[in-house]
C-alpha cells in the first residue's frame, strides 16, 4: 500500500517535529523567568558549568518546573486521547470523569483541615486517593457494563459533587489565608515546584502512561463499536476499567503537584488528528507530545506576559481551552444532535 506508507511516513515526521518542539520549549522554559538566560548559558548550567547562581536557577528552580511541564502536559494529552478513543467522542477529556476535580478536592480537604501545608506529602497522597475513589464511585454508580452515556452522566455528577465539596471546604475554612492558599493552588500552576514534587508525581504519571499505551490496539478495535470490538476478542468491560485506572493514576498524580490544569487533554488530540489521522491507537503518542508542548508553551507564556501579579498557567489554558471547547461543540453539533450510539 503506497498511500499507507505515505501516511506512516508523515506520522513519523510529525512525531520527530514534535519531539524537537518539546526540546526547544524545554530550553525556553529553562531560560525564561525573572533572570533571563541565553540558551548557551542554560545548557552550560545544566551540565554543571557557569556560576553558582545560574546553576541553582537552572537546575533547582527551573528544571523541576520544566520536567513537570513535559510530564504533566504529556499525561494530560495522552489521557484526553485515550478517553476520546474509549468514548468514541471527540468532546471527551479527563475532567469528564471527575477525576481531576476529585483529586483537587482531596488536596483541598487536607489543606482546609489543617492536616498539612502545601508542601507536605499528605497533599499529593490525598489527591491520588481521591482520584481513585472518584473512579471507583463512577464505576459503581454506572455499573460494570454501563453504556457510555451513563458513564458520562455519572462523571458529570461526580465532578459536580467534587466541585461543590471543594467550595464547601473553602467556605467553611475559618482562616482566610487558608482559603486564599487553596484558591491559588486550585488555579493550577507549575511555579515553585521542586524535585520532591517531580519524584512524587512521576511514578504515577509513568504508570498511567504505560497502562494507556498498552491499550492502543484495543482502542483501535473499539472504533467499530463496543459490540464489534467484543466480537473481535476485546474485553470491552476490562478495557474501560483499565483506561479509567490509567487516567486516574496519571491525572491524579499530576493534579496533586500542580492543581487543576484543564483543556490540554481536550485540545491536544484535536490538533493532532488532521496531521496523523483518526486512528485512536496512533493518536496516543502524538497527543502526549503535543500536550507536553502546549503546557510548556503556556508555562513559558505566563512568565513572558507582563502583569503585576503572576498569571497561573491553569488560568491561561482555560482561557484558551474554553473557546476551543465551544468551537468543537458547534462543529460537532450535528453529529451530537444526531445521537451518538
Amino acid at each position: 500500500m503506497v498511500t499507507a506508507d505515505v501516511a506512516a511516513g508523515r506520522r513519523t515526521s510529525v512525531i520527530v517535529a514534535l519531539v524537537l518542539l518539546v526540546a526547544l520549549l524545554t530550553l525556553a522554559s529553562l531560560a525564561v523567568g525573572p533572570v533571563r538566560l541565553s540558551p548557551l548559558a542554560v545548557v552550560d548550567a545544566l551540565f554543571g558549568g557557569g556560576d553558582e547562581v545560574q546553576r541553582v536557577i537552572v537546575q533547582e528552580i527551573r528544571l523541576p518546573r520544566a520536567i513537570l511541564g513535559v510530564a504533566i502536559g504529556a499525561i494530560l494529552g495522552l489521557s484526553g486521547a485515550a478517553l476520546q478513543g474509549l468514548l468514541r467522542n471527540p468532546l471527551a477529556s479527563p475532567s469528564l470523569f471527575g477525576a481531576p476535580q476529585s483529586a483537587a478536592f482531596g488536596a483541598v480537604l487536607v489543606i482546609a483541615l489543617g492536616l498539612a501545608d502545601v508542601r507536605s506529602y499528605a497533599l499529593p497522597v490525598a489527591a491520588i486517593v481521591m482520584a481513585f475513589l472518584s473512579v471507583f464511585m463512577l464505576l459503581s454508580v454506572a455499573g460494570r457494563n454501563a453504556g457510555l452515556l451513563i458513564l458520562i452522566l455519572a462523571g458529570l455528577a461526580i465532578s459536580s459533587l467534587a466541585g461543590a465539596a471543594t467550595a464547601l471546604a473553602m467556605n467553611l475554612s475559618s482562616n482566610p489565608f487558608v482559603a486564599l492558599e487553596i484558591a491559588f493552588w486550585l488555579l493550577g500552576s507549575l511555579a515553585d515546584r521542586n524535585f520532591r514534587h517531580v519524584i512524587l508525581a512521576m511514578p504515577f504519571i509513568l504508570a498511567g502512561a504505560a497502562i494507556l499505551f498498552s491499550q492502543r490496539s484495543a482502542l483501535r478495535a473499539l472504533s467499530l463499536g463496543e459490540e464489534t470490538a467484543q466480537s473481535l476478542g476485546v474485553n470491552v468491560g476490562v478495557l474501560r476499567l483499565v483506561v479509567i485506572v490509567g487516567v486516574a493514576l496519571g491525572v491524579g498524580g499530576a493534579v496533586a503537584v500542580t492543581g487543576t490544569i484543564g483543556f490540554i487533554g481536550l485540545i491536544a488530540p484535536h490538533l493532532m488528528r488532521p496531521l496523523v489521522g483518526y486512528d485512536p491507537g496512533r493518536l496516543l503518542l502524538p497527543s502526549a507530545l503535543s500536550g507536553a508542548a502546549l503546557l510548556l508553551a503556556a508555562d513559558v507564556a505566563v512568565r513572558i506576559i507582563p502583569s503585576t501579579s503572576d498569571i497561573k498557567v491553569g488560568v491561561l489554558t482555560s482561557l484558551i481551552g474554553v473557546p476551543f471547547f465551544l468551537y468543537l461543540i458547534v462543529r460537532e453539533r450535528r453529529a451530537l444532535g444526531g445521537g451518538v450510539a
Binding site: M1, A4, A7, R88, R220, L222, S223, L224, G225, E227, T228, S231, G277, Y278, D279, P280, A341
Partner: peptide
C-alpha cells in the same frame, strides 16, 4: 460477527 448498522466511529481508511 457483523452487527446491524455496522458503525465506524472514526474516519479510518477501509483497509484499516
Amino acid at each position: 460477527y457483523l452487527p446491524q448498522g455496522h458503525m465506524v466511529h472514526w474516519p479510518l481508511p477501509a483497509w484499516d
